[in-house]
């Protein structure tokens, strides 16, 4: 059975089409990654699936219930860890958890035991009775996750769980999410704009760009579709002849998917080490000055570029504006 089914979700804010016909499904017990740059619509998708906001049109079923017709039934079965921490700063970690449990109708000894169990699970036992204001970013994040789990949800939504954490805390949180997925037998929908995060945690990913899902599959499948290596040539000064340079690269045997981005020319070749000297000499003979050449094995970055024709980092920076 599917834990999450989204069908043709659409949602706009003023002149921005945040969701432009989003459909996907997440199987029971799966860790599913919704991957995309800032502004792709991931958080809007999550806010729709968690009943925080209503879509303009489309349908969504979460944990067997319709998010529009029975939002309260959905709320009982889901945990939501928002992009921004929802921790009550003036309360202790334990008080935060107790209140969330009470909102879910839990009480008494079972609630207290569950809270103890979670504090242990996310490593906050020592800090449980300290005011959350004094927690570090990583501790607040772990408390957020415990808050999302207090009522033993079937489906957990993690919206950008590691944004704002230092690399060490990020890796620690990844370990934790992996452990939770097993221990609590959860379905997890994770959004991230860190490609390596989706690669590491998600069994399947969907890549979102500008309100649409552009491709869906396991990280392995997506990367396998991209044969060969990506070669990126940075030109010193193209003088408006960047398209000429692309044409030269295109004429080289084995070079496919040639594209330009500013002063960069990209292509995919079966073997980078063999192709680079040929590319360089061809460009040199036509008077192009090459600043740098890089080659890379396929990553989810490349998957993003391949399916959207846009560079992930550039798109990510633009989405923040």
């Amino acid at each position: 059975m599917d834990a999450i089914v989204a069908e043709d979700l659409r949602k706009h804010y003023k002149d921005i089409q945040a969701l432009d016909g989003v459909s996907f499904s997440v199987r029971d017990g799966e860790v599913f990654g919704l991957l995309g740059p800032n502004g792709a619509g991931k958080s809007t998708a999550v806010r729709t699936l968690t009943t925080l906001t209503r879509p303009d049109s489309g349908r969504a079923i979460v944990a067997g219930e319709d998010v529009i017709r029975h939002p309260n039934r959905v709320r009982r079965s889901i945990g939501y860890v928002a992009q921004d921490s929802g921790v009550d700063w003036e309360a202790t970690g334990r008080e935060n958890l107790l209140l969330q449990g009470r909102i879910h109708g839990m009480a008494g000894a079972p609630l207290r035991a569950r809270v103890d169990e979670l504090l242990e699970l996310v490593g906050l036992r020592e800090a449980a009775d300290r005011i959350a204001r004094n927690y570090s970013g990583g501790m607040k994040r772990r408390l957020d996750i415990a808050i999302g789990l207090v009522h033993r949800p079937r489906v957990l939504f993690l919206d950008e769980p590691t944004t704002g954490l230092d690399p060490e805390a990020r890796v620690a949180l990844w370990d934790e999410v992996e452990r939770l997925a097993q221990q609590e037998s959860l379905t997890i929908l994770l959004t991230t704009h860190y490609l390596e995060e989706a690669d590491r945690l998600a069994e399947r990913v969907a890549i979102m760009s500008r309100g649409k899902i552009v491709v869906e599959g396991t990280p392995g499948e997506l990367k396998a579709n991209l044969r060969g290596e990506l070669v990126t040539v940075e030109l010193g000064d193209a003088n408006g002849r960047i398209e000429d340079a692309a044409e030269i690269v295109r004429s080289i045997a084995g070079a496919t998917e040639v594209g330009v981005d500013g002063r960069l020319v990209r292509t995919r070749v079966p073997n980078g080490a063999q192709a680079i000297p040929t590319i360089l000499s061809a460009l040199d003979s036509r008077g192009f000055q090459v600043e740098s050449v890089t080659t890379a094995r396929p990553s989810l970055d490349d998957v993003y570029l391949h399916y959207t024709g846009r560079d992930f980092a550039t798109e990510d920076a633009a989405g923040k504006g």
Binding site: T51, L52, N72, Y80, G86, Q100
Partner: peptide
């Protein structure tokens, strides 16, 4: 501002 309300609204509060 602290997103506590969002947390409550996504729960059956």
């Amino acid at each position: 501002d602290r997103h506590v309300i969002d947390r409550f609204l996504a729960a059956p509060a």
